[in-house]
Design a protein around this nucleic acid. Sequence first.
DNA 1: CAATCACATATTGGATCCAATGTACATGTG
DNA 2: CACATGTACATTGGATCCAATATGTGATTG
Lengths: 249, 249
Amino acid sequence: MWMAKMPGSGAGGEDKPGEVDRGELEHTLRRVVQRVGRPRTATAFLEESLRSAIVAGDIPGGTALRQEAVAEIFGVSRMPVREAIRQLEAQGLVEFQPHKGAVVAAISARDAADNWAIRKALECAALEYSIPGLTEQDIMRGEEGIAEMDDETDFSRLGLLNRRFHMTLYARAQFPGMLQLIEKHLIASDRYIRFQLAALGRDKMAQDDHRAILTAAGKGDAGRACRLLASHIEDAGRRLVAWLKTREG
Amino acid sequence: MWMAKMPGSGAGGEDKPGEVDRGELEHTLRRVVQRVGRPRTATAFLEESLRSAIVAGDIPGGTALRQEAVAEIFGVSRMPVREAIRQLEAQGLVEFQPHKGAVVAAISARDAADNWAIRKALECAALEYSIPGLTEQDIMRGEEGIAEMDDETDFSRLGLLNRRFHMTLYARAQFPGMLQLIEKHLIASDRYIRFQLAALGRDKMAQDDHRAILTAAGKGDAGRACRLLASHIEDAGRRLVAWLKTREG
DNA sequence: CAATCACATATTGGATCCAATGTACATGTG
DNA sequence: CACATGTACATTGGATCCAATATGTGATTG
């Protein structure tokens, strides 16, 4: 059984400068293992775990993912690690170079700008498609989501709640692939949001935006709702990118 | 062996600009080979080949991709096949089930509607970002592209030219990730366009659309260009989806 | 002394083998 | 006869081994 022999083998923690701290990576990954549970294949399990750890910021950008190290930590061979890393590369979470290996994609102002521009385009379109189909129940769920966010103090859950709120707005759009693409980019933006939250604290204005958007959507006023959503995303993106640029420079 | 080795590839490979005469030949050779698309790894080679074959319609939707069979055809082991299939799955070109295998994603009206909705949202946004930066040279290149499409009779090249034309329109948007996403969906839509072309023949109206969009973009009239592009994509999508639905039902 | 080359080492890419899983078909039982 | 079960086969998942490639270090040579 591939998960049985987790502990024991990799205890010797040698930390060379400029490389991954094996002990720390091992520790965080083990925590993630608990959270994710065990799916049908080792590859899927690794993919879930690594993605979760990356978007949660547990593995910082720039970290090299050595196949052998990851394999030992999870108690599997290098092969499922390779396949999982391939998948993560296609999802843009790691950068990969043949014969050199994979590193966790670094957080950058450029990527953030990209992500927010894409989100703005897709989410506004999805909202427009979704509004005619929104039910009162959807609106109620949105209000509950906003209230939950008001009460939430844990930054890591805040990202999840924010994502869920946005997705409820678009839930009635007829395009499942579009929704999947949006969710993927919302997950990616979680990394950035959490980064900013940790440094600047939470942003009260976002909640006002959320309320206004939901109200407009509830009235079926697609034009107003889309304009509000556009500036909601654009403002957040602009603030984030500006802050990241000061950090980079 | 599945590919020829590069001559002299073992050397240090540092390219010093200026006087070093020796390494220049090697360097230029390497660049040429790279532009032509020399695959660095078997996995990359398989991914390219399979994607090209799927997009071109050489492998029809629904076809099961047996790892062993593909491996034999390409003269490699199953492992690079597995990794390539993983990548294709992440790109949405094949559907994958654990322990069952991969099948080429089927063409469906539903997926087409999804693809066109996503493209409309993303391409309109990209055009708006790009227009302020468009140069006269870009416009000229667009005109050349339109002319090339007028003359082209080969359907498979027509898709490439159409894609290139669209991408020139968006080339000046500062969001590389957005452009990459658009190109990915343009490639996916090639499958559908080719399908339709083969059945219905080519669509003359699209060329009029292209000219009108390019003219508006050349004048810097972003509003008009975006409206035209939106209806260009929407019309084509609607016609395609309607046609696919009659085929399915 | 600088540049280059040769060699050692670490890491990934690919091949082959074995195990696990799913499917099809035959067989037994109500 | 319908349905459950067991078994054989096909196919994929994972482990281990070997080969190819990149990188770092020290010797050599001009």
